[in-house]
Write a protein that binds this DNA or RNA. Structure first.
Lengths: 147, 147
DNA sequence: CTTTTTTTGAATTTGAATTTCAATTTCAAT
DNA sequence: ATTGAAATTGAAATTCAAATTCAAAAAAAG
């Protein structure tokens, strides 16, 4: 995606920082990833690139990506921080399989509406939210019933 | 609550463990707490009791309480694990204030229903879920507008 | 009472997150 | 091209809660 780089460059400029090779490389790794990645995971890929990036740099760049609104921390279970794309990736909830760890991203406008209504009831101004449903996915349920 | 102790005693028995004074004391501290507590928090209260409990014992007992279905881990923001009551405390969602850290517990049956419907759509068997809305509570909103 | 088992808790270890700091790179000014 | 100030990098150190270890203390069994 062309404009994600532009967003990042713009963000960095506003902060008086520059889009270095390492940062570009790390952004690339992050955007290419299909699934959620940990800092460790991004690092493992980034260190093999032509312009190698160290762990610390990956760590700091992920933080920048977060601040730039490009990456988002998620935590489906474990205590290790994972990142998912945020830019050009609408808000969604997760259905996480407890057996295999896979997940699907889902969105229900009705639920979103009711969440706002719930906030009204408590005179609460919502900014963001998180909803995760844990259970068993279709594949794992089948695997269990017909082994 | 009388029967929480019984639940714990029963759980311990099933595991071949005994309800020691420390464990009883720690359970008491946990049940008396109004808000969510960290292990550290439980420990700070427990160490002042007649039957003092060390950090390790608190740590291990909270784990037992979790396994017994009496305590539940929650994580509203930070990375430190907090516990809330679970036994005799219905499922609920949290509205967490980003300014002051306070929260209210809420439940919307409509939302719960739609969550199940959403799971059906994905052929997903839900076991448990977590929903947290982060924003600004009534008090903090007022404090900002009329300082 | 003696032996065996469980429990306790101080101390240690672990592991991810974060910070430090010296070396390196970048870049604007000369 | 050269200099030097500022930004960047990354190995190493630090932090801090979580988890484990192990010897002493307590409880239970014989």
């Amino acid at each position: 995606m062309r404009d994600v780089q532009d967003v990042f460059a713009g963000f960095l400029e506003k902060r008086g920082l520059s889009l270095t090779r390492q940062r570009r490389e790390i952004l690339g790794v992050f955007l290419d990833a299909k699934r959620h990645l940990t800092v460790e995971g991004v690092y493992n890929i980034a260190k093999k690139k032509v312009v190698r990036a160290g762990y610390t740099t990956v760590f700091r760049t992920m933080k920048l990506l977060r601040e730039a609104g490009i990456a988002k921390e998620v935590n489906l279970g474990g205590k290790i921080v994972k990142y998912e794309r945020r830019y050009g990736h609408e808000h969604h909830d997760h259905l996480v399989c407890l057996e295999c760890g896979s997940f699907v991203e889902a969105l229900d406008p009705e639920i979103e509406k009711l969440q706002n209504k719930l906030c009204n009831k408590f005179d609460f101004t919502p900014r963001r939210h998180r909803m995760e449903i844990f259970g068993t996915c279709r594949r794992c349920r089948r695997r269990k019933h017909k082994p």
